[in-house]
C-alpha cells in the first residue's frame, strides 16, 4: 500500500508542477507554434521590447509597492493591537471582518468596491484610477499581513515588553526597541506576501481600475482571453519565477527565529 500511495502522490505532484514547467520550457521555443524547434530567447527579448507590457508592469510595480507599504504598516500595527488587547468590541470587530474579507469571493469584493467608489464619486470630483486600485489592494492585503504578523507575535514572550515598561520605557519606545525588532522577520514575510498578492491580482483590479491604471495581469488576461501567444508564455514564466522566489523568501523569513 505504501508503494501505491507514493506513486499516487508522485502523480499529484506532477499534476501540480508539470503545467508551469511545460509552459516555462516552451517559452524558450524558437517556433511560434507548440512544436519544439530549438532553444531561443526571442520571446523574452520581445517581452522586454514591448512598450505596452512595460507600461503595465510599471503600473503594477507602483501599485504593489504603495499598497504593500501602507498595508504592511497598518496590518502590523493592527496585529500588535490584537496581540495586546485580545478581547473587546474593536478587536472582535476587526477579527471577524478580516476573517470575512478572507473568504469573500473576489468578484463580490470587486463589485462592492466598484459600487462604493461610484457612490462616493457622486460627491467628489474623482474618477477610477491608480488611487482606487491602491486602496482596494491595501484593503485585501491587510488580512494576510495581520495573519502572518500575529502568528509571529504569538511566538514572542510578552514579559520582555513588560520588563521594558517596568524599567521606565514609554509604550512607543518599548514597542519600537523591544517588540518590533523581534517581529521584523514576520513583518518582512508579511510584506513579501502582500506584494505577491497585489502584483498578481486581476479580478478586483480590473473592476476598480481606470483608463490610466492598466496593470500587468490585466494585459496578460486580455492576451490569454484571445487564446494566448508565445509572448504570454514568456511573460507568464517570468512572473511565476519572480513570485516563486519571493514566496520562498517569505517562507524562510516566517520560519526563521
Amino acid at each position: 500500500m505504501k508503494r501505491a500511495l507514493s506513486l499516487y502522490a508522485a502523480a499529484i505532484y506532477l499534476f501540480l508542477h508539470l503545467p508551469l514547467a511545460v509552459l516555462a520550457v516552451f517559452s524558450f521555443n524558437s517556433s511560434r507554434f507548440t512544436v519544439w524547434e530549438g532553444f531561443s530567447p526571442r520571446w523574452y527579448q520581445a517581452v522586454f521590447r514591448d512598450p505596452h507590457l512595460a507600461e503595465a508592469a510599471l503600473n503594477s510595480l507602483i501599485i504593489a509597492f504603495t499598497a504593500t507599504a501602507a498595508g504592511t504598516v497598518i496590518g502590523t500595527l493592527c496585529a500588535y493591537g490584537l496581540w495586546k488587547q485580545k478581547t473587546g468590541l474593536l478587536p472582535n470587530f476587526i477579527k471577524s471582518t478580516l476573517y470575512l474579507s478572507l473568504v469573500t469571493p473576489e468578484i463580490v469584493m470587486g463589485v462592492s468596491l466598484l459600487a462604493f467608489y461610484q457612490w462616493v464619486f457622486r460627491f467628489l470630483d474623482v474618477q477610477l484610477g491608480m488611487h482606487t486600485v491602491v486602496l482596494a489592494h491595501v484593503m485585501f492585503s491587510i488580512a494576510y499581513v495581520v495573519v502572518v504578523a500575529l502568528a509571529r507575535l504569538r511566538t514572542l514572550d510578552p514579559s520582555l515588553e513588560e520588563a521594558a515598561l517596568d524599567l521606565g520605557a514609554t509604550e512607543w519606545v518599548a514597542f519600537r526597541k523591544v517588540t518590533l525588532p523581534q517581529l521584523m522577520p514576520g513583518v518582512a514575510a508579511a510584506a513579501l506576501l502582500a506584494f505577491t498578492i497585489s502584483i498578481d491580482d486581476y479580478v478586483i483590479t480590473s473592476l476598480v481600475a481606470g483608463v490610466d491604471s492598466e496593470t500587468l495581469p490585466m494585459v496578460i488576461y486580455a492576451m490569454a482571453r484571445r487564446g494566448g501567444s508565445p509572448l504570454v508564455n514568456a511573460v507568464s514564466s517570468l512572473i511565476a519565477v519572480i513570485l516563486g522566489v519571493m514566496i520562498v523568501a517569505s517562507e524562510r523569513l516566517r520560519r526563521s527565529s
Binding site: 509552459l23 516552451f26 511565476a240 514566496i247
Partner: peptide, 14 residues
C-alpha cells in the same frame, strides 16, 4: 502562491 493567473493560463497552453 505563484500567480493564480499564470497557473490558469498554463492550462490554456496545455
Amino acid at each position: 502562491w505563484t500567480s493564480f493567473l499564470v497557473r490558469t493560463y498554463a492550462w490554456m497552453f496545455l
